[in-house]
Amino acid sequence: MSATPGPREVPPVTLLESRFTRDDLPRLRMLVEQYADHQGLTEPRRGEFIVAVDAVAVNAVEHAGGGGTLVLQRGNGHLACHIHDLGPGFSADVIPALAPGLDGHAGGRGLWLAGLLTDELTISAGPGGTRVTLAVRLPR
Rank of each mutant, 00 (worst) to 15 (best):
T4K: 06
L15A: 07
P96M: 08
F49N: 07
N59A: 06
W112K: 14
R19M: 12
L117N: 02
R131C: 06
A57E: 08
Y35V: 09
D24W: 10
L79R: 01
V32Q: 00
N59T: 05
A57K: 13
T21A: 13
G110P: 04
H82V: 02
V132Y: 05
A80S: 15
H84G: 14
R131G: 06
H38L: 03
L102A: 04
Q39H: 01
P11M: 09
H38D: 06
Q39R: 00
L31S: 13
N59F: 00
D103R: 01
A106F: 12
N76M: 12
V10Q: 06
A125M: 09
V58P: 04
G68R: 05
V51C: 08
T122F: 00
G87A: 12
T118L: 01
A52C: 09
V132L: 03
I95Q: 07
M1W: 08
Q73F: 11
T69L: 14
H82T: 02
R29D: 13
D24F: 11
G67H: 06
A106R: 15
G77R: 13
N59Y: 09
V136M: 09
L98Y: 00
A125L: 11
I83Q: 04
R8G: 01
V71P: 04
G104I: 01
L16Y: 13
L70Q: 12
H78V: 15
R45Q: 08
S2K: 05
G6V: 00
R140K: 08
A80F: 11
F49W: 06
A36F: 05
L98S: 02
M1N: 11
L111Y: 07
G75M: 00
L86K: 15
R74D: 00
T4H: 04
R109V: 07
A80V: 03
L41K: 01
N76P: 06
I123G: 08
T122A: 05
M1C: 08
Q73S: 15
V51Q: 09
A125H: 10
R19H: 11
A99E: 05
A106M: 12
L117W: 01
W112N: 13
L111R: 01
V132Q: 02
P7Y: 00
H105M: 13
T133Q: 07
M30G: 04
V61M: 10
P96G: 12
G107Q: 12
G128V: 07
D103A: 14
I83D: 03
P44L: 12
L79D: 02
I95T: 10
G104L: 02
A3D: 03
R109G: 13
T69V: 15
G110D: 13
G40D: 02
I50T: 09
I50G: 09
G128N: 11
S2D: 11
L41C: 02
R8A: 07
Q39G: 00
L113C: 08
R137L: 10
G126N: 12
D85Q: 14
G110Y: 12
G108A: 14
D23L: 15
E33D: 13
V58I: 10
G107K: 14
G75V: 01
D23P: 09
P26D: 10
R27Q: 12
A114T: 04
A64S: 10
L117C: 08
V136Y: 11
G75K: 00
A80K: 14
L25Y: 04
L16R: 11
P12L: 10
L121C: 06
T122W: 00
G68C: 14
P7F: 00
V132A: 08
L117P: 02
G47S: 13
